[in-house]
Each structure stands twice: as structure tokens, then as C-alpha cells.
Simulated assay, not measured.
Amino acid sequence: MTGATEITPELLRGWPPPPVSDDGDKEVRGRVLVLAGGAQVAGATLLTAVAALRAGAGKLQIGAPRSLAPALALAVPEARVFPAAETGTGELSPDAAADLAEALQRCDAAVIGPGMLDEGSAGELALRLLEGDGPAVVVDAAAMRGLADDPARARLRGGRMVLTPHAGEMAALTGRTKAQIQADPLAAARSAAADLKAVVALKGAVTFVVTPDGAAWRHEGGAVGLATSGSGDVLAGIIAGLLARGASPAQAAAWGVFVHGQAGVRLSRRIGRLGFLARELLEEIAPVLDALEGGAGGG
């Protein structure tokens, strides 16, 4: 099997997401549902949700633990917020799947897991939401653990799922050690993508995007400062926003990884190699996308 194709501005310009006309309304750009965070990491919901809008999604919905819903509605005034069942520690409960089923069906893309800490609850919630027909879904962080526990249910999304693990999460997902993943990340990503029938974006200094049939791309043009709290939440949101706009899972992952990396490069130049914040990435998403989609370059 061949290696991975480099993700470059030229590659992406030849593989653009569905165009948005100047007179297109928000319905055309799709609706995203964000299920993230909890009492201890509530900010992850904000980072993921705003990133989806910055990537061009037209409408935003958030499924929030009941106790956090009012605060999130104020923090993200662009969103419609659905209060849902929560666990004793203030995260979304698996029972929230019933509360959010109708909202999920009305969406064009969803993201589950950023900022969640309870792997058991997050994983079961993801599995319940993956059952039956529904939109493309980005599964991140703690929510990925449930896929390893019940891969047959995880496969039900049939290629309309994007996983965004780092090496440690990939180790938990596949039952390998972190060292084994780091020794051959492309092979690990290909194995997981084929097993779970998902697009995998395996994050690292070099990030690999792999489809279930083994097609692969690599990106290594990011910034070291991207290795910071909340950065992965932003990436998950970008990918979900692109999915809502009509991009395919592989396309959304490849574009999302590049845009995220270039946002970090821009902040490195403006602020410094280290020390910029995940929330600052949000302001860079639209300019990077605009440059790419307008043909002026991503840097």
C-alpha cells in the first residue's frame, strides 16, 4: 500500500468543499450539533461550537447538561441550546441520547466528546447516537473509548464518522501501546479506519488522515504551540463545520487539519512560537479558509 499524500494549499484548492454563493442563506451552510464538555471542562463546548461557526456552518445547536445549559446559552448566544440528562459529575449522560435524538436528526453534522472526561458515559452516549440513520459525526476524546468497547455498533455510521485521536487515544482505541502507535502512525491509522469504518485523523507533529479503504494524507506544517489545552476541541469543531457545509468526511478532515495548522502558524508569527491560546485560534479560522477558498494561499 502506498504512503500518504501531503496536504497542501494546491491539493485543497483542487478538492474544494461545496461552494457558497453570495446570496446563500444559513440553511444552505448546514446545521451542527455540539455535544461536549461538562462541569469541569465547560469551555470545551464553547471552543468546539464557535470553531464550527468560524468554519462556515450556518446554524449551531448545543446539547448541554441541564445544569450548564443556561450558562452556555449566554456564553454562545449564536446557539440554540438543548438541556439534556446529565451524570452525577455534571457531564452528558448516555440517557441524553433520547433527549437529543430529534435535534440530531435535524442536523447535517454532529460532534461528540471534546472536553468530556467520563469515558464510560461519553462512549455509551456516542454509541447510542451512532445507531440508525443520521448525519456525519465527529467523535473526539473520551467518546472514542466506547467505540473500542463495541466496534460493531461503531461501524453503523458506515464511513460517515471522523475520529480525531492523538497517539495516546489511538492506543486506547486499538489496544496497542502508545509507543507502538508512534512507531508507525500511518499503519495504526489505517488499521483503525478499516476496523471502525471511519475516517481517522491521527494527530501529532505529523497528522495523518486515513479513509476506511486506506487512502491517506499527511500534514506536517503546523506549529508546536498547537500542543495546548483546547486545541483539539477547535479542530473537532472545524471538521464538524465543514461537514455541515457538505464536505465529505475525508475532505472535512483534510481541510480541517490544514486550516487548524495554519491558524497556529499565523498565531506563531503574531504572538510567539509558544503561549498562544486555543481560544485565539478561533479568530484565525475564517481568514485561513477565505484565503484558501479565494485562492490567495493559506499562510
Rank of each mutant, 00 (worst) to 15 (best):
A141Y: 05
A142T: 04
A143M: 01
M144E: 01
R145E: 04
G146I: 00
G146H: 02
G146P: 00
A148P: 00
D149E: 13
D149L: 15
A152E: 15
A152W: 06
R153T: 08
A154G: 10
A154K: 10
R155F: 04
R155E: 02
L156I: 03
L156F: 00
L156S: 14
R157I: 00
R157Y: 01
G158S: 12
G158V: 02
G159I: 02
G159T: 00
R160H: 09
R160Y: 04
R160G: 02
M161Q: 10
V162I: 13
T164Y: 01
T164H: 00
P165E: 04
H166P: 11
A167P: 15
A167Q: 14
G168P: 15
G168T: 10
E169L: 05
E169Q: 05
A171D: 11
A171F: 09
A172R: 15
A172T: 06
T174R: 05
G175E: 07
R176D: 14
T177G: 15
K178G: 15
A179N: 14
A179P: 13
A179I: 13
Q180D: 14
Q180S: 15
I181M: 12
I181W: 08
Q182S: 09
A183M: 09
D184N: 13
D184Y: 07
D184K: 03
P185C: 13
L186N: 10
A187R: 15
A187G: 15
A188C: 08
A188I: 04
A188E: 04
A189G: 14
A189I: 05
R190F: 05
R190D: 02
S191E: 14
A193S: 13
A194M: 03
D195T: 10
D195F: 04
L196V: 00
L196W: 02
L196Y: 00
K197N: 10
K197Y: 03
A198P: 11
A198H: 06
A198R: 02
V200I: 14
A201Y: 07
K203F: 14
A205Q: 14
V206L: 11
T207L: 06
T207Y: 11
T207S: 15
F208D: 10
F208K: 05
V209H: 07
V209K: 03
V209T: 10
V210T: 13
V210K: 02
T211D: 03
T211K: 03
P212T: 00
P212N: 02
D213A: 07
D213L: 00
G214H: 01
W217H: 11
W217T: 05
R218P: 11
R218C: 13
R218F: 06
H219L: 14
E220L: 11
E220N: 14
E220Y: 09
G221Y: 12
G221M: 05
G222V: 13
G222Q: 12
G222L: 11
A223N: 12
V224F: 06
V224M: 03
G225L: 06
G225T: 07
G225H: 08
A227Q: 07
T228K: 12
T228G: 01
S229V: 10
S229R: 06
S231T: 07
S231A: 15
D233E: 07
D233L: 05
V234F: 10
V234Q: 10
V234W: 09
L235H: 13
L235C: 13
G237M: 08
G237I: 06
I239D: 06
I239L: 06
A240R: 09
A240P: 02
A240C: 08
A240M: 09
A240V: 08
G241C: 12
G241S: 09
A244N: 04
